[in-house]
């Protein structure tokens, strides 16, 4: 698929875990403002792909380019680039020893070098946006899963990232909390945030994604518009996978 203004580009990316070839010459381009949903069976390499995009996972070969710049190996340059690509985890990973407000402010102060008052002001704005302004002084453990995940999104947004990566952001949530998180994500998509989302939420994929990338056994098997993919999957793997999740 031709992408007009690429923001994230992966070319021939390979990674092994021992003898397991988790990423097999992956080519993927995500355009600015695009929302790409990644789906696929468990163990197909979705998380690894997502984590490779900000180098939480190193790769052996191939190129990863963010906004025209190749992802650096380690050190300061990598840290700077990571600040541009936010990440939201399945298990939220809020800093357990800090309040909600401090969670959102910490990296603004440490990485963006904002003054504390300025960072806190921005944090409160973002918390308000995800509907949690009233919880700023609580600790993460005092919030529900859905609330924690919305704080995590606010924390990622606080860095003013160019793109956001989501690795199964709603998989650890009770059903009634899934929508409050998806709503925030839909809103972001609507505002033009570039997003890569690993999820099995078909509703979200249909309503918010520009493309669906289907992975199996470390390869990208299909990369298509959501409606096309869900209604007429081409590969046997995708048909098989969809029949399994749609009957659930």
């Amino acid at each position: 698929m031709a992408v007009v203004d690429p923001l994230i580009e992966l070319r021939g990316v390979n990674k092994h875990y021992g003898t397991l070839h988790v990423l097999q010459s992956i080519d993927l381009t995500v355009g600015r403002g695009e929302v790409v949903v990644v789906i696929g069976p468990s163990g197909s390499g979705k998380s690894t792909l997502c984590r490779a995009m900000n180098r939480l996972e190193s790769v052996e070969s191939g190129e990863i380019v963010i906004d025209g710049r190749p992802l650096p190996e380690e050190g300061k340059a990598l840290a700077r680039l990571r600040a541009e690509v936010g990440m939201v985890f399945q298990s939220f990973n809020l800093f357990a020893h800090k309040t909600v407000l401090a969670n959102v402010s910490l990296a603004q102060i440490k990485v963006r070098r904002r003054k504390k008052e300025e960072a806190d002001r921005r944090s409160r704005e973002l918390l308000d946006r995800v509907g949690l302004a009233a919880h700023a002084d609580k600790f993460p453990a005092q919030l529900s899963g859905g609330q924690q995940q919305r704080v995590a999104i606010a924390r990622a947004l606080a860095m003013d990232p160019k793109a956001l990566l989501f690795d199964e952001p709603t998989s650890a949530l009770d059903p009634e909390m899934i929508n409050e998180v998806l709503d925030v994500m839909r809103q972001l998509a609507h505002e033009g945030m570039t997003m890569v989302v690993v999820t099995h939420e078909m509703g979200f994929a249909r309503s918010a994604a520009n493309r669906v990338v289907f992975m199996a056994d470390g390869r990208i098997v299909e990369d298509r518009a959501p409606e096309d993919f869900f209604t007429t999957p081409r590969s046997e793997r995708a048909k098989d996978f969809l029949s399994k999740i749609l009957t659930h």
Binding site: R82, M87, A107
Partner: peptide
């Protein structure tokens, strides 16, 4: 938990 350090690094720390 590993995720704590990962979250920090993913924010550019």
């Amino acid at each position: 938990p590993r995720g704590q350090g990962e979250a920090a690094r993913s924010l550019g720390m």
